[in-house]
Nucleic acid binder design. Structure first.
Lengths: 137, 137
DNA sequence: CATAAAAGTCGTAATCATTCCTATTTACAA
DNA sequence: TTGTAAATAGGAATGATTACGACTTTTATG
């Protein structure tokens, strides 16, 4: 999903497109990895001097509910990135820079065979480590 | 890993086996799912009336470092369970009762082919939902 | 046993991410 | 342009976790 698509989703659903909402989307569309709220706060404070936590977290949740942002829990902090909605896949996540690489393999189809009579809501397959550019630096 | 094995690991590494350390291990060996610190605190308070956070978290970290406990991040809370060290596998986790079911399939071998030049430290494959007994209740 | 050093624990304060609250401001439809 | 529901500000509250100095227990050793 890109910036314009995200704004369209917002408008279609009847949400207002405020300056800060656009700023938040621009922030994530300029990154290609998972980012914690604190990075977003730091970014917006450069422009506005101060920003309400409420604005940050309300919009992060809204975007997540609308499918605009993906979320993952990394060491007690929620991290977000723009959804890559084109197809189902998982991520390698660099623990230094937060950048992600798509992993095409998904083990759910075989795993489901082991889970008859279970209700499945969600699943997570993530690989952690260091990406080539962080290894060289 | 069972209670006695865990105590052995503790002794082998030169750590003292105090009453509270045994209590903590007994707590986890009596459960078969991931439990948050707050459940452990509630359990120990029944016996001791009050317990220091320091004792709880210090020992949870120690056990995790020693490989006695496995850890996962669930909605901003760290959850722990006794390691099932016999072989590599993953878990289904019930979001109601916390109980887990082992999943044998692991996609890492195929995923690694997509990650040449990456340093891989860890990976997580978890399936979330509701277990049969919670579905019936 | 006695005992002392090391390791563990206590009680509480501090920290950090996140949530909550009320007053004020803003986007946008009419 | 204006009315109003939605959004934001500013800061207090919450909940999990970490930190710390003082005190207590475990365990090795004589």
């Amino acid at each position: 999903m890109n910036l314009q698509e995200a704004i369209n989703v917002l408008k279609e659903k009847g949400y207002k497109t405020t300056g800060k909402r656009k700023d938040i989307l621009e922030f994530f569309s300029s990154k290609d990895g998972y980012r914690p709220a604190k990075d977003l706060i730091a970014h917006l404070e450069k422009k506005y001097g101060a920003i309400s936590f409420d604005t940050i977290y309300r919009n992060l949740h809204l975007y997540h509910d609308l499918g605009i942002l993906e979320k993952t829990d990394l060491e007690g902090e929620k991290h977000f990135r723009l959804s890559c909605s084109h197809h189902h896949h998982h991520h390698f996540i660099c623990r230094d820079c937060g950048k992600t690489k798509e992993i095409e393999v998904c083990p759910m189809d075989t795993a489901l065979a082991e889970l008859t009579n279970y209700e499945i809501d969600d699943h997570k397959f993530e690989i952690y480590g260091r990406c080539p550019s962080c290894l060289n630096a």
